[in-house]
Design a protein around this nucleic acid. Structure first.
Length: 279
DNA sequence: CACTGAGCCTGCTAGC
DNA sequence: TGCTAGCAGGCTCAGT
């Protein structure tokens, strides 16, 4: 599941080949991918647009277009945005998973594959994009995400800490993998009400979030099964995971107790019951 | 406000 | 071996 580090890696791998290129044509093969636009409108609005910049906001791959529109791609679970040079071997993806194909002015291709069809590609006007961007919480790797900010915000809500970390309006870019990893490192139980977390623990959580995300970016993301960068490469961060995806009963890498699996906010969650106490 | 559940989807796998 | 039921999960929306 692509989260902040994976999306950041996709942006970094797409930036060099894509910036400065003009989209000469686009084909939408699964209309819901571009909702609420219909495929004809989408195609018309991206055709002949030049990519001025590639940025990341939360889990969105953001392409600034010369038309003033902002093109965003959300990979959700199984989306892949793959760049292929003209004449190079095409991606090893089943053709039936192709949802959008963009042809560029140099005949290179940018293709959006998505097995489960959850991914979304949208076009926003400048004003719309400002609103969308403002609806997200702070970027955890930006300087305005401080431990003091986190502590003050935790104090203001009774919500359980894990669903709170997954709330993109609270903090942008964290998903199931890095929420579990950060809570494990900070030794916080995922069900703990936010307003009962001490200043000390909030500092630990802040540090854990930053280090877990930075490390994953340094390793080009975590590939469990589907994730690929813009060039089709897998991520190398999986060996750094402490708890996510570990079968119940696996020894805790820190204390040796048996890891436990629970469901929090309808999501699979792995914790060490000894390191992460509710009280 | 906090939380729950349904819906969107299909590939994979556990269990028969 | 072959089949099927159920799980996985980010996000949105409706309901309690």
């Amino acid at each position: 599941m692509p989260e902040l580090p994976e999306v950041e890696t996709v942006c970094r791998t797409l930036r060099e080949p894509l910036v400065g290129r003009t989209i000469s044509a686009a084909v939408v093969t699964w209309p819901r991918t571009v909702e609420p636009l219909d495929p004809g409108d989408f195609t018309a609005r991206v055709s002949d647009a030049t990519v001025d910049a590639i940025e990341r906001r939360a889990k969105l791959i953001v392409a600034r277009l010369s038309t003033g529109d902002t093109l965003t791609t959300h990979l959700r679970m199984t989306g892949k945005l793959l760049y292929t040079r003209h004449g190079a071997t095409p991606p090893e993806e089943p053709e039936r998973h192709l949802r959008i194909a963009y042809e560029l002015d140099n005949l290179d291709m940018l293709e959006f594959f998505d097995a489960r069809k959850f991914g979304r590609v949208r076009l926003h006007t400048a004003e719309e994009w400002d609103d969308v961007s403002a609806s997200y919480g702070p970027e955890p790797l930006d300087p305005d995400f401080t431990s003091d900010w986190l502590y003050q915000r935790l104090r203001a809500t009774t919500r359980q800490i894990k669903p709170l970390l997954l709330d993109q309006k609270f903090i942008a870019g964290i998903g199931n993998i890095y929420a579990d990893e950060a809570l494990f490192l900070a030794r916080i139980h995922p069900l703990k009400p936010a307003n009962t977390i001490s200043r000390r623990k909030a500092e630990a959580l802040h540090q854990a979030i930053v280090s877990v995300l930075s490390q994953a970016i340094a390793n080009a993301g975590t590939t469990l099964r589907d994730y690929r960068s813009g060039s089709g490469a897998i991520g190398m961060n999986k060996p750094n995971l402490n708890v996510y995806g570990a079968p119940p009963g696996t020894p805790c890498p820190r204390c040796g107790a048996r890891l436990k699996r629970l469901v929090v906010g309808q999501r699979g969650t792995t914790i060490c019951p000894r390191c992460q106490r509710l009280r």
